[in-house]
Write a protein that binds this DNA or RNA. Sequence first.
RNA 1: CGGGCCGUAGUAUACCGGUAGUACGUACGAUUCGGGUUCGUAUGGACCGGGUUCGAUUCCCGGCGGCCCGACCA
Length: 417
Amino acid sequence: MRQSQLFTKTRKHAPKDEVAKNAQLLIRGGFIHKEMAGVYSYLPLGLRVFKRIEQIIREEMNAIGGQEMTLTALQSPAAWKKTGRWDDAAIDVWFKTELKGGGELGLGTTHEEPLTELMTEYVESYKDLPKYVYQFQTKFRNEMRAKSGIMRTREFVMKDLYSFSRSEEEFREFYEKCAAAYMKIFKRVGLGEQTFRTFASGGSFSKFSDEFQTLSDAGEDTIHLHRGKGIAVNKEVYTDEVLAELGIEKSELEEVKAIEVGNIFPLGTRFSDALGLKFKDEKGNEQSVVMGCYGIGPGRLMGTIVEVLSDEKGIVWPKEVAPFRVHLISISGGNADVVAEADRLYELLNENGVEALYDDRESRAGEKFADADLIGIPMRIVVSEKTMAEGGVELSGRHNGGTAIVSEDEVIKRIRA
RNA sequence: CGGGCCGUAGUAUACCGGUAGUACGUACGAUUCGGGUUCGUAUGGACCGGGUUCGAUUCCCGGCGGCCCGACCA
């Protein structure tokens, strides 16, 4: 895409009402727009990153047997009343409203109830199980206090997968599979090294759950990390009993701040019992379906990547989530030959299927480099009088900054590598 | 929900109970052209309502909005 056509622009100053690094950089770079507290729009660059993250999650969920669908955001109270969760005392973040013709409805905060009820239409026999269903859905949560940029918002997309199994053992098997898939996802988005499976509270559904925590001072959570074993314990459940169960000792742990980027937990039969999701086993006996729930917020993940991987000049996107594969920059100083050469290279990249952001604006080099650093595309190609004189183009990386003059043929190969 | 701070051009910031200034941006002209070039001209602003006052952007009250700490957090 030609940068001159992009409707967004970069800014030198972050808005004063944003303190979180992720929001400051994402707004300065033109990735997101703050609509109101805790509500952000995703602009062209931001949406590209978001979609990349979403796609990585999708691929990994499909790989473990997930079937994608979309449930509704508007929620009828009926199913929620059956499980006792329509009450504000049970879920205090409901956005509720009324229908014109009478009757209440809510904006979905989570989707156990509607999906469980939906599954009763299709699950009858042990032959129908297990099943794994997921979606990317907008969740609405009337948080007391939105904060930390795009990390805790009132409207956000969540990938939520629900597992429906015949037994506790079958559930456990998938639970571990999903935990492994989660680690793959965090690795692919560039957070593998600093993300740890963390033993956590199970809330009102089960004794325990597992969180995935990415180390960052910007995090809301405090965890006790065992670097050697690569596991951690959330402060909430940091008890002698839990430590003994995990076979670790206090002296081996360090207390660190972290961002919760994922959470998986057992639901047992809490929802299947309340909503009548049962199946007939091989002997004809009726059994309750054993459920589990698995969430990741792509937006929060995007914010976390910015928090963890940016530097003083701006964002540094990992290759797999970058809005474009390469940032092509022309430094022409009004020289038409340089413009023609850069145009040609842009076409060449397109022809080779390399998505490029092409800075074809008539700006000076300094401004273009500063913008490129802020936007954070990992690979950069510069075309200028200098590179033309040297018979190639300049290739450099956002992260290490090293540059090299390479030929055109070589550049395509290197980018694809 | 408890506590605190804050609302001034598009953005970031000054000052002031009596003409609201600067930087960036934007427009035009010139200059320059590998790390936000320099100069000139122009553009554009006090969240809303009430009160005090001769006079309020400034002080007081209310509303709305924003941020932070804590609590909460499927």
